[in-house]
Design a protein around this nucleic acid. Sequence first.
DNA 1: CGTCTGGTTGAACGTTATCAACTTTCGTGG
DNA 2: CCACGAAAGTTGATAACGTTCAACCAGACG
Lengths: 256, 256
Amino acid sequence: MGEQISFKSNDNTKALLDLEELKARCGKCNLRELCLPVGLTQNDMERLDQVIRKRQRVEKGALLYRQYDSFTCLYAVRLGHFKTYQVTHDGAQHITGFQMAGEILGLDAINSGKHQCDAKALEDSEVCEIHFAELQKLFAEMPALLRQFQRLMSQEITRDQSIMLLLGNMTADQRFAAFLVNLSSRYAARGYSGTSIQLRMGREEIGDYLGLTIESISRVITRFKKAGLLEVANRELLILDLPRMRNLAAGAQLVA
Amino acid sequence: MGEQISFKSNDNTKALLDLEELKARCGKCNLRELCLPVGLTQNDMERLDQVIRKRQRVEKGALLYRQYDSFTCLYAVRLGHFKTYQVTHDGAQHITGFQMAGEILGLDAINSGKHQCDAKALEDSEVCEIHFAELQKLFAEMPALLRQFQRLMSQEITRDQSIMLLLGNMTADQRFAAFLVNLSSRYAARGYSGTSIQLRMGREEIGDYLGLTIESISRVITRFKKAGLLEVANRELLILDLPRMRNLAAGAQLVA
DNA sequence: CGTCTGGTTGAACGTTATCAACTTTCGTGG
DNA sequence: CCACGAAAGTTGATAACGTTCAACCAGACG
């Protein structure tokens, strides 16, 4: 199968939105953008920027934090991709999520004051540190910001529950379809293509996320290719039939 | 196997703590107790009580709320047990959690303003309504209360992640062992026996929670009995070897 | 050019699901 | 209080799905 794949995927580094536009909308950090719709004043925004001041580069493969590190900051992904994972007793890693630009890392640490997982950069990335104690101070004065933050935490709970459903009830095909549909909509929401996707993680990491082995992932991909759902070249994906992919995720059977 | 089981389980309705003591500590609702350690003044407590005023009985099998209901209140379980579950496309129910006295229901609804699951009483129960908008008002004035609430949400995230790990990586034996260990420690934390447990849910519900079938649950129980880990009479459980149970949950092999 | 890593494919195996029969428990009404 | 029927739980046989083990392939890199 050495044939040349016919599509030219965008590499997801070029947003459909103009990059400068995006920067302007995001300010120093995505949390800021998240707060735009909730009616903060200009003054509020500036104070928020104080809290989100420090930007940090994290190179590919580096850990942003590790399990049991003490918690002082949340992190907003500005650029790049991360995975969060726990290492099980038998040494396997279970990935709890993949985070992309605009998503927040570290919410699970608030309770105990210790991070509950490792966070590793899947590629050269950049985050904003959000000093939690300082953010806390703002909550008292900016209720809209607090509301937004609570929504964020609630959203994380909802997200985790849908993964529980996936891991508890779905077949390998369904899991992978759901995974792709999820990625697709997240990229689409960021102005990237929802059908031409460059995976930032390897097959093994997908497996560790979906509760499957690397071989199973590989086989699912092959089945999807044969069914005409997908074109694949390494980590470049082209989803050919997104509606059918959604149906699969929803429990429809795969017909070759 | 009509023989009489030799242990007399307490039925978990009698706490080891004196009931009056517990009431005094809890006030009108468990959220109040949750806030005791965080330094609220007497005045604060009274204002909190205002928000948590209404108590509501929910009889066995009744729904406290259902998916897509619009969200106005959180609920603190005062008495009894609940399950939260989503119904999948193919009609199966996936249980996202079992809640007992002192635990909060509805956190997943904050983001969208709609409940994300059904909540059903496993027995005659009682909850406190916590009007979220009013609770919100208190946050601005009582930062300690806010902190406590954020810890609660973060804890829920951590809890969900450990279930993801269970569903993604564990065998049937491990899952059930982890389930029992979890129940055990939650009852122990409430002053009940951590080894003599009365299950409030049926085998099928345990299965729907752990991502297994009812038959698998039954077989696991049989194996555990034969291995001398457990005595079982219907829904009465006696954990005979909690340390070994913990080891099983952590990945040790079951030896008959 | 050879090695190493990541990915694919095949065959055998194992765990859990499924299907079916059976037993026990529980609630209800006689 | 007993009898009945429904619901819940157990057990066995078989099948399916995914894992494991192993071989192989392709591209990246020194």
